[in-house]
Amino acid sequence: MIRDYLTSLFSFSFMILIIIIPLFVVLEILEKRWLRKASWARPFKALGLSTEACFPLLSGLIFGLFYGAGLIIDFLKNSRLNAKETLAILVFLSIFHSAFEDTLLFLAAGANFFLITIPRVILALSVLIVLKYIRIGE
């Protein structure tokens, strides 16, 4: 029993370690080098968001709601985003954030990649699409 306990503890922790370390190296480089380039924003602009709105959306999507929280709150309070865009960003992020870290952790636990990713992408994109075609606060 103790042996089972230790084997699965060490194999699971090790798997998480070898996922997390390279992930954070990549994310750090992404954040400091590429996040500020506007070309990132293009696919979201097609979904009806302004370039300005894409920054909090992308940082939340990549780095998580909690890590990016200060950034997102400051941004939303200081920017000229309208009520609809703020709503779109928050609803999108509340159901789909920290896309890389959380997904990889559950893959390590044994979940199926497509089944945990596709439904979330569909849900999050449909939020943006629905909000694109309805009028709120305009």
Binding site: S13, I16, L17, I20, I21, P22, L23, F24, V25, V26, L27, E28, I29, K32, R33, E101
Partner: peptide, 17 residues
């Protein structure tokens, strides 16, 4: 950058543990 990413990764891992 890689070094600070490594540090963040280790902190996150410890937090996770």
């Amino acid at each position: 950058l890689a070094l600070s990413g490594l540090k963040r990764g280790i902190y996150t891992f410890l937090d996770l543990l």
